[in-house]
Amino acid sequence: MQRERQPKFAMISILLTVGAFILFVLATIVDSLSDYSNVLMVAGLALLAASWGIYFIGGRSLQRAEVATENVITVIGCKGCDIREERPFSEGDYVFKEIGPCKKCSGTSYIRAIYAISIKKD
């Protein structure tokens, strides 16, 4: 939720920091690069800035993308026969509500069950 950063972003951020560190070390140790030390320093700082940016912005993108959408089903049965019908839930439905005569026989049909099937995958 709040603090889970996507591991992908964390990895990129760390890699950039390591890259910046390597640049700094090279600029300091390798003599032949010393002419370009300014360029290297600017490049290193840019990498660091990018790393920080990704670290903070990356954390924001994972705010519960999955909204729990649910599919609620009303199951209709009959006292007289074994008819079984399913339809989407509509307001006013409740379990064991009697809803008029059966289509198939002369019995009374009623709501046998109401349940949700979650579409959200774990």
Partner: peptide, 10 residues
């Protein structure tokens, strides 16, 4: 501002 030819920790 620009330490030319000094490296980072000259």
């Amino acid at each position: 501002a620009i330490p030319v030819g000094q490296g980072l920790f000259p």
